[in-house]
Design a protein around this nucleic acid. Structure first.
Lengths: 335, 335
DNA sequence: CTGAAAGCGCTTACAG
DNA sequence: CTGAAAGCGCTTACAG
């Protein structure tokens, strides 16, 4: 058995041309059924493997999509990114594409260094998963390649984006707290860090507004610096009865802090999170939170990027995928 | 500006041949320094990007290494896998290779289904990260492609492997417990699940032996079924004063269980883990554990696989990379 | 239904 | 130092 069987090898054995073999193996028209069967059978027998590199070269496409994740996000809730990646990879498979992860270092981000895969023309499009700095985004846009933002968007760029419906999720979970009788509700998150955190805040705020609850600036608590690293924070002097956290991890940190300061959850304070990631079930009590629909987000991101590759003028805007409240044990009715 | 600038385009502009352009851009001999500079400058100007696909086709290599992770592992400590992947990718870059993650579903594993990337000849070697079933391993071996096991090994396969020095790590951390005065020490882990868990057990056992401590079968506690899913377990009737857990996650679960049953850590029982992953610092108190040297493991795995691609007869055996004990607050001196 | 020719973008081996 | 020719494995467009 030859090391690498090619279509030509099959063609020679059957005394046909490699064009015919190509047509047969790709189920194209122009080969008799009989011959097609014979070719396919022999290909199997000879252990033929399709050479996708040759195909790539022919059509000038790599069939790779690069999923760029800024390194600082991978330190956070890693499960999320691997899950999203897996989902993207599975959906891309249906289109005949591959997903390749590129974890971008802070240095590369600062220096606007693009992944090697770009410089070697081995990629047809990018999915940005996790928000890089504006300069980097602008740099990527100039490439003129299909580009999708996933799990964030940028006000100043009209790049198509698939995001969690942060606004509505936070709105609904705040409504739920209010329905439980809470009126003194704090929000934990740096409003200037990412669009997600900001939108979740606005959803929280909308719920307050609708219930005629005044927004108390002491109840807006920053949890991280602008690079995304968590910072320690003080609890408000007058304590609220509930906290809406911008993510489960910070809810987890907050609950440790509350316990440390002698508050019981949910007896003294209720706490809700967002994401339903690993931290949601690591805390005691388990967190009531908003579950992100990873599957649906990945599916749409893939659809968008593939349609953009077909026709670069395709544009989709911003798609907000609805999440779902998961009710657990971190919320009490306010008596 | 043309959409895709090729060497030929540069050649025409400079009235030289594309062979010369190729030599210049690759810093090969046979071009005058002056001409080489001119070519490089123009290439930059024209926005030339190297076409690695053409190169791949020419040398019949994809320059891709596929990192296969069985899906059931990704549910566990995801941070680890993403970290390992990143480290592999970075090291592969030095060799001009790319790393591509493939998360293998249980179904694919059962049906011995290889990743599409293999069938399309878009991969030159495999790194198996996390132990698949024996049948799958044997199937992969038959491919005759460069193959490395990472973070596990298989008794029956003589495939090169890079692993954490599980035996020594567990041996040393058990020694530490004994030095703190403990003699009734349990081990938590299913001995028949993976080679890591087994080796960690043996390291624990060696430490007992050296200190003339009888192994008590009631003190060997299974934590998961053979597919790797955690199961609930009973605490021994007569409690030990310390637990060696096969991983941080199970140490975390154990500590919750202990707390629930009214035991305090480390006052009543000491607990140590293994891995130093996210669970080590999520528990209160923080875990004393063994840190895995991800960087060193990835570096060696990459070295091995690349040398095997150069010469398939290269063989390295099993390399155990030493870990490091991280001392935290989950161990007390036994009075 | 079948196939000869040309081409994708590069590199190698050779000739000058 | 420079370049014409051939080839990597496939597919497309066309001719028969």
């Amino acid at each position: 058995m030859k090391v690498n069987v090619t279509m030509k090898d099959i063609a020679e054995r059957l005394d046909v041309s490699s064009v015919t073999v190509s047509k047969a193996l790709n189920d194209k028209e122009g080969v008799s059924d009989e011959l097609k069967e014979k070719i396919k059978t022999l290909a199997d027998e000879m252990g033929y493997r399709y050479n996708a590199v040759a195909k790539s070269m022919k059509d000038g496409r790599s069939y790779n999509i690069c999923v760029i994740i800024p390194e600082r996000y991978t330190g956070m809730s890693q499960s999320f990114y691997l899950k999203v990646y897996q989902s993207i990879a599975q959906h891309l498979e249906e289109y005949g594409y591959y997903a390749i992860i590129h974890i971008m270092t802070d240095d590369d981000e600062d220096q606007l260094k693009l992944p090697r895969i770009y410089h070697e023309q081995r990629v047809d499009g990018f999915v940005l998963l996790g928000q890089p700095k504006t300069d980097y985004i602008n740099h990527m846009k100039k490439l003129g390649m299909p580009l999708i933002f996933l799990d964030f968007y940028d006000e100043n760029s009209n790049v198509d984006a698939v995001i969690t419906d942060n606004f509505n999720g936070a709105y609904e979970i705040t409504n739920y707290l209010i329905k439980q009788g809470h009126r003194d509700i704090a929000y934990v998150g740096n409003l200037f860090s990412t669009s997600s955190i900001q939108d979740r805040f606005l959803g929280y705020y909308k719920s307050l507004l609708e219930h005629k609850i005044q927004l108390n600036q002491d109840y807006v608590i920053s949890d991280r610096n602008e690079r995304g690293a968590f910072i320690s924070f003080d609890l408000p002097e007058v304590m609220p009865t509930a906290f809406v956290c911008n993510c489960d991890q910070v809810a987890h940190l907050l609950m440790e802090r509350l316990r440390h300061d002698g508050y019981k959850v949910p007896e003294d304070c209720s706490v809700v999170g967002f994401d339903n990631d690993i931290y949601a079930t690591l805390t005691t009590p388990n967190l009531t939170t908003v579950e992100v629909d990873v599957e649906e987000m990945a599916k749409n991101a893939v659809k968008f990027i593939c349609e953009k590759m077909e026709d670069p003028t395709n544009s989709f805007g911003r798609l907000a995928v609805k999440g779902k409240i998961i009710y657990r044990d971190s919320v009490n009715e306010k008596k």
